[in-house]
C-alpha cells in the first residue's frame, strides 16, 4: 500500500517524511557506489584491461593455443553433461517436494542444499577418497577399465556435486507457490501424468527453470576448487578453463591468463544480462497473472 506522493524527493523513492535528509542520502549512495565500484566493478575492468594489455594479437594468440582450445572444449563438454543431469534432478526433486507432503520433506530440502555449504576443495577430496589411489570404490571401478580421478569423469562428477542445488532450489519455492490446483484440474480433465507435467507444470515454471539452468551453467563452467583437486592438471586433457587460467598465471603468462579469464568474465556478463532479462520477464508474468 504505497501511496503515490506528489513530491518524491531527489534520489529517494519514498515520501519526504520517510526519507533520510538529502545529505544522508547522498553519503549513503556514494558509499554504496564506492564499495561496489572498488569490490565488484574494478576486478571486472582489470580482467579486460590486463587481457588486452599486450595488444589484440597476443590476446587472440592466447585464446587459440591448442591447450586453451582443449580447455574450452572440456569446459563446454562438462557443462553439457552437468546441466541436463541437474535439470532432470531439479525437476524431479521439486515435483516431489513441492507437490506432495511427506515426513522428512524438510530434511530432504536441506540435503539438496548441502553441497552449497561444503567447501569446493572438500568436494574434490571426497571423490578422491572414493576413486583415488586407495579409494574404497577404486577396485570395483577398475573392473570397468574406467579412469575417474585425474580424468574427465572425475571432473564431471565433482561439478555435478557442486551444482546439485542450483536448479532444484529455484524450482521448489516456485512450484510450492503455484500449488497443485492447475495440475489437479488437468488430471480431472483427463490428462495423463506426463501430459500434465509437459503442458501445465513445465510452462508454469519455465522462467524459474531457465534461471536455475543459467546459474547452474555459470557455476559448472567456472568451478575451480573441486575440479582443481580431482583433475590432475593434465594440459590438453583434464584442464578446464579456470584451471588453464591458473596454470598460465602461475607461469607468469599474465596476459594469456587474463585473456582466458576474460572469456570467463564474458560468460559472467552474459549470465548477468540474461538473468536480468529473465527477472524482468518473470515479473511481467507475475503481473499478468494478477499478483
Amino acid at each position: 500500500m504505497r501511496v503515490p506522493s506528489s513530491e518524491m524527493p531527489f534520489l529517494s523513492n519514498r515520501s519526504p517524511l520517510l526519507s533520510e535528509p538529502l545529505w544522508v542520502r547522498i553519503i549513503l549512495l556514494l558509499l554504496a557506489l564506492l564499495f561496489l565500484g572498488s569490490f565488484l566493478l574494478l576486478p571486472l575492468l582489470v580482467v579486460f584491461g590486463e587481457a588486452l594489455s599486450q595488444g589484440v594479437t597476443v590476446y587472440l594468440a592466447a585464446l587459440t593455443t591448442p591447450d586453451a582450445l582443449a580447455a574450452i572444449r572440456l569446459t563446454l563438454l562438462t557443462a553439457a553433461i552437468v546441466v541436463p543431469c541437474n535439470m532432470v534432478f531439479g525437476l524431479a526433486a521439486a515435483w516431489c517436494i513441492a507437490k506432495f507432503r511427506f515426513p522428512g520433506r524438510g530434511l530432504l530440502t536441506t540435503l539438496i542444499d548441502l553441497p552449497f555449504s561444503v567447501s569446493p576443495v572438500v568436494a574434490g577430496l571426497i571423490f578422491m577418497l572414493m576413486f583415488g589411489a586407495q579409494g574404497w570404490l577404486t577396485p570395483w571401478i577398475q573392473t570397468f577399465h574406467v579412469k575417474i580421478v585425474f580424468a574427465v569423469p572425475g571432473i564431471v562428477l565433482v561439478t555435478l556435486f557442486v551444482t546439485v542445488p542450483f536448479i532444484a532450489r529455484e524450482l521448489i519455492p516456485l512450484m510450492e507457490e503455484q500449488g497443485v490446483d492447475d495440475e489437479e484440474s488437468a488430471i480431472m480433465l483427463g490428462a495423463s501424468g506426463w501430459q500434465t507435467f509437459w503442458r501445465v507444470t513445465l510452462p508454469n515454471v519455465r522462467w524459474g527453470l531457465m534461471y536455475g539452468v543459467l546459474l547452474c551453467n555459470a557455476r559448472a563452467m567456472g568451478e575451480f576448487g573441486a575440479v582443481s583437486v580431482i583433475s590432475g592438471h593434465i594440459r590438453g586433457s583434464t584442464n578446464t578453463m579456470p584451471l588453464h587460467v591458473e596454470i598460465l598465471y602461475n607461469e607468469y603468462e599474465f596476459a594469456a591468463a587474463f585473456a582466458v579469464a576474460s572469456l570467463l568474465a564474458l560468460l559472467a556478463l552474459v549470465t548477468l544480462a540474461v538473468k536480468t532479462y529473465l527477472q524482468w520477464h518473470y515479473r511481467k508474468q507475475l503481473r499478468a497473472m494478477g499478483h
Binding site: 529517494s12 523513492n13 565488484l40 579456470p242 591468463a257 587474463f258 556478463l269 538473468k275 536480468t276
Partner: peptide, 28 residues
C-alpha cells in the same frame, strides 16, 4: 529505497560474484 540513474545496472552487478568464476576473481 533510492532512485538514481543506473540503479538497474548496479542491481545486476551485485550478482557478479555469483557469476564470475572464482579463479578469475582471484587473479583480478
Amino acid at each position: 529505497r533510492y532512485r538514481f540513474l543506473g540503479k538497474k545496472l548496479l542491481d545486476a552487478m551485485v550478482d557478479l560474484p555469483f557469476a564470475l568464476p572464482t579463479a578469475v576473481a582471484g587473479i583480478a
